[in-house]
Write a protein that binds this DNA or RNA. Structure first.
Lengths: 209, 209
DNA sequence: ATAGCTTATATCGGGCCGATAGAGGTTCTT
DNA sequence: AAGAACCTCTATCGGCCCGATATAAGCTAT
């Protein structure tokens, strides 16, 4: 599939007319945000290019003041056709990049205190996105496609959150000796419900390096 | 976190020495493949740059023939320090790009026959990655970080697969004559339109396990 | 023996991100 | 009323990175 910022813009413009700025906002906060990214640096050139190619047309709203005029873009019939062609092709494999998991892979080398901070921040991030998804599910008219994506997101985020909560205790137990040295580290992490303080077992976490 | 191809290479080289080609293979098939990507076009320049900066050193194995000599890279103490610094910074948010979900968002406009093909191909893809993960979990020595990442991957892929299987039946039921729970690839209808939106059912995947 | 896959190097065009800039609006504080 | 801070809206630019491509040889199978 020809899935670039151009196709993304066509997809959004097929739902409603919009300015480049509005497209950015929809990509940031809307349904699209869960599986796509796009910055101004790619949206504006994409719109300009598609305008040249006749896939979109533009209506300029100049209010007379010195500020830049709103450029409201609309999809053309040719653009609809291009989008249709893209939709009827095989999708490329997903791409997933996670610095968090990279760090988790090397967790043994990270300062335990900082590890806890990273971990909880990530968990909170996932919970925030789930909240956003739920909220958005109530405001948006749920056409089948949107429903599917929302349900998918719910399922995945739910699993991630459950996993992170489950594993947290286990993880921190493993590092308890390195960080606390026999002390009860309840002063550190706000959200860990006492799972820290269970019997400190001996663990050979400290590997090479 | 300074998570670019350089940091990735440092991470791999901190585990063992490797050529650029080997790094690519590890990124393609190893634990890293689940949450990171890197191509030759970024790996080779990254190694060259880090060599200049003293973060890695290189041992050239020339076998006398005309073919390009193996360049085996090793991390230096300075490189270890750079990696350590990177690991002790906050991770950037995850990035997830899915052409499949983009297409699902517009499922109503996709030819149902093709939609089924796309859907099953994606499902198969997820199952293949889960198989890869399980296989890799048995061969690799499971240090805590790797275990965490593998378990995370298992949980997520398991949920995705279950969701896709569950929703598929629901989708096909909504399509009614398309093929029930089995598959009937020969399909003529241009677009399903409203036939889909009426039946809104709850999926068991959303809740708890 | 020719085709095709694998190991191994490396470059290049182009896509895209993140930062930046500029101009005016609103909103909240001091 | 002045100022700070943030929002809407435009757009560009450096630099990172992907995907395609080139080169060269070995190994395997038909």
């Amino acid at each position: 599939m020809v899935m670039n910022v151009r196709t993304l813009c066509l997809g959004i413009l097929s739902l409603r007319e919009a300015t480049g700025y509005e497209i950015k906002k929809m990509v940031e906060k809307g349904v699209f945000s869960h599986f796509i990214d796009a910055s101004f640096g790619s949206i504006y050139p994409a719109l300009a290019q598609m305008l040249r190619e006749g896939l979109v047309r533009v209506r300029t709203e100049d209010d007379g003041s010195g500020r830049p005029p709103r450029k409201v873009y609309q999809i053309t019939e040719q653009g609809r056709q291009a989008l249709q062609n893209a939709l009827n092709t095989d999708p490329a494999p997903d791409k997933f990049k996670s610095e968090f998991l990279f760090q988790m892979l090397f967790m043994e080398r990270i300062d335990p205190a900082h590890l806890a901070v990273i971990y909880d921040a990530y968990l909170e991030e996932q919970e925030a996105e789930l909240r956003m998804l739920e909220e958005e599910a109530q405001t948006m008219p749920a056409h089948p496609g949107a429903r599917f994506v929302q349900d998918y997101g719910r399922a995945m985020l739910g699993t991630a959150i459950r996993f992170l909560k489950d594993k947290r205790a286990e993880m921190m137990r493993a590092f308890a000796e390195v960080g606390g040295t026999g002390e009860r580290p309840e002063e550190n992490a706000p959200c860990c419900g006492g799972a820290f303080s269970s019997s400190a077992e001996k663990s050979s976490v400290n590997g090479e390096d």
